[in-house]
Design a protein around this nucleic acid. Structure first.
Length: 561
RNA sequence: GUCCCCGUAGCUCAGUAGGAUAGAGCGAGCGCCUCCUAAGCGCUAGGUCACAGGUUCGAUUCCUGUCGGGGACACCA
């Protein structure tokens, strides 16, 4: 419908250009907005304000001319000029409610589009190191990342979900030492406990499992505990596999699955790190100083050059990161999105600089980053900081166990990524209208309940048959709902393009709210069959959009509550 | 000290790439079940969009600065 309005305006603008009112060498593309205020109609455009200067006429006068040149169209019932020169469009009921037919015909496909043209997109998210259970921050990353993937798929992209993890290096060494200490019966209070060792209870679980020679499977690898507390290498291998499996169970409980698990160690094993360093050197972007090898990242906008190879040997972490991203590029992903915590902000410049210095034809500003801010968890108004298993932080599993997967996913995706998020456990657990998850799910369940009642009454028609009586609709609440439903495809597109999944949660909250208002004000199962059928059709359309939207969030749509 | 993000109603937050009188929800106050699920709905109250400049027909939105809150600033990952 918005397109229809835009086309009419294009035609009117072209007429005025022909008449010489508007300059021909300048094109004005009318921006058509959804109105905030119903008294402003369904759509509004500011094009008369924008073009007034070029036309040499006051905005309202230009608007008057534009309106007079608009081609006739049955979808538009009224056009008004308002305020400083806005043109407001009021749509006819028939065109407003036509969206119900569109939705019922498209079903699960409503809101989806093919703008991505099957382009392969890779989204890397979570990417936690295998040194412990996933924490809330990872949970936010998982919720945002997975929702973003689903949104991209809904826009016609082919998405690869990827999880990258560091399975070697200092942190893994530290993990091994911690498990070893536990295997030998030491506690964190003991004087020989490794400095900076991991103290959480889960370390004891790993140690016990290792000593009991259990077998764990993770990332298609199978590792059996050697049961030897002196074999540090075996302990490390086992601990990594064990904790990766733990994280996978957390993610599974959260409803998130990855296509690729990428090991940092593979970049070394395959010579990719060495090759990257060689290319950077050949391209003249490195130099030796103080016994270390440096990369001239300043040339690519960094504050200072960065060390690649340390004095005592070994590469700094961003070198394999650059190799990893080159690998992504070589795998053919022209669009790559990295979803990470904002504490990784400093890596962005370095990785991009390294990629530019490779001169591999990678565009500047590649890859994309979506960085989310911190998460704080509260209960009874107090910040919660620790969990029993992990010791120093709240785990994702804690939340899922306590408030459920649906509420956890919804809450963690419901805020703009660049603002800090307060996760209120009491709110997420509450089963009242103040909890948006239940509120939305309840709207869906209510519709299902009405349909069940309909069946009990012996009325069992197809959605299309109900929709034959859309002309019986015309209440304000009904028009509002239809307009809201019509905005859904645009929302799906915007949320993906802007990489802002939180819009989806707000949209669903609003749609559910409009539905509840309507439900309370007007009965659907009325004696007038035409009115009843029209309303049922609208109900079915609302249900379809709720289902489609919740699906993109990874939140269930229960039929009863 | 440098860089990044945030600052909108008592609280939690939206604000769709500059638009019309800034919106929801919760909380507060008052109402609504002989009626398809009250896990719901209606009404009322509540604002200097942190502050100061700038850009322009117009700024919560863009730019600069100040003040608050958070984060990042390793030859750690």
């Amino acid at each position: 419908m918005k397109d229809t309005v835009a086309q009419l305006l294009e035609a009117a603008l072209a007429s005025l250009a022909d008449e010489g009112v508007l300059p021909k060498d300048q094109t004005f593309s009318p921006k058509v907005d959804n109105t905030k205020d119903k008294t402003h109609g369904d759509f509004a455009t500011n094009v008369a304000l924008a073009a007034a200067k070029a036309a040499g006429k006051p905005p309202r006068e230009l608007a008057q001319l534009l309106v007079s040149r608009l081609p006739a169209n049955t979808a538009v019932s009224k056009v008004e000029i308002a305020g400083p020169g806005f043109i407001n469009f009021f749509m006819s009921d028939a065109s407003s409610f036509a969206v119900v037919n569109t939705i019922l015909a498209a079903g699960a496909a409503y809101g989806r589009n093919t703008s991505g043209q099957n382009e392969s997109v890779q989204v890397e998210f979570v990417s936690a190191n295998p040194t412990g259970p996933l924490h809330v921050g990872h949970g936010r990353g998982a919720a945002i990342g997975d929702c973003l993937c689903r949104l991209l798929e809904a826009n016609g992209y082919r998405v690869t979900r990827e999880f990258y993890y560091n399975d070697a290096g200092a942190q893994i060494n530290n993990l091994g030492l911690s498990v070893q200490a536990r295997a030998k019966g030491l506690t964190p209070e003991h004087e020989s406990w490794p400095a900076d060792g991991y103290r959480g209870d889960y370390i004891t679980d790993v140690a016990n499992s290792y000593m009991a020679r259990e077998t764990v499977t993770a990332d298609d690898r199978e590792v059996t505990g050697a049961g030897d507390a002196d074999n540090l290498e075996a302990i490390q291998d086992f601990a990594v596999a064990y904790l990766r499996r733990e994280q996978d169970l957390d993610l599974k409980a959260f409803g998130v699955e990855f296509d690729v698990y990428f090991l940092e160690s593979s970049l070394y094993a395959d010579g990719k790190v060495e090759a990257t360093v060689n290319t950077l050197t050949e391209n003249g972007y490195t130099y030796e100083q103080d016994g270390a090898l440096w990369l001239r990242t300043i040339e690519f906008g960094d504050d200072k050059d960065r060390v690649m190879r340390k004095k005592e040997g070994g590469y700094t972490y961003f070198v394999p990161d650059v190799a990893y991203h080159l690998n992504k590029w070589q795998r053919g992903f022209t669009t790559v999105i990295n979803e990470q915590g904002a504490d990784h902000h400093s890596t962005v410049t370095r990785v991009r600089a390294g990629l530019q210095a490779l001169k591999a034809g990678i565009p500047e500003g590649w890859p994309d980053y979506v960085l989310h801010q911190m998460v704080m968890v509260t209960r009874s108004g107090q910040e919660v900081k620790i969990s029993k298993r992990a010791g120093s932080y709240v785990t994702l599993r804690d939340l899922i166990d306590e408030v459920g997967r649906d509420a956890t996913r919804f809450f963690l995706a419901a805020r703009r990524v660049d603002s800090q998020l307060t996760f209120d456990i009491d709110l997420a657990r509450s089963q009242t209208n103040e909890n948006p998850v239940y509120y939305i799910q309840y709207a869906h369940a209510r519709i299902c309940s009405v349909i069940r009642k309909l069946n009990e009454l012996g009325i069992d028609k197809s959605a299309e048959a109900f929709a034959e009586h859309l002309d019986a609709l015309g209440l304000d609440e009904e028009r509002d709902i239809a307009n809201k439903l019509a905005q859904y495809p645009e929302l799906i597109s915007n949320a993906a393009v802007l990489r802002e999944p939180h819009h989806l949660t707000h949209y669903l909250r609003e749609l559910a709210g409009q539905f509840h208002t309507y439900y309370n004000a007007h009965k659907v199962l009325v004696d007038d069959e035409q009115v009843r059928d029209g309303r049922v059709a609208l109900y079915l359309a609302v249900r379809q959009v709720l289902v489609n939207g919740l699906e993109l969030l990874g939140v269930s749509a229960p039929e009863e509550m």
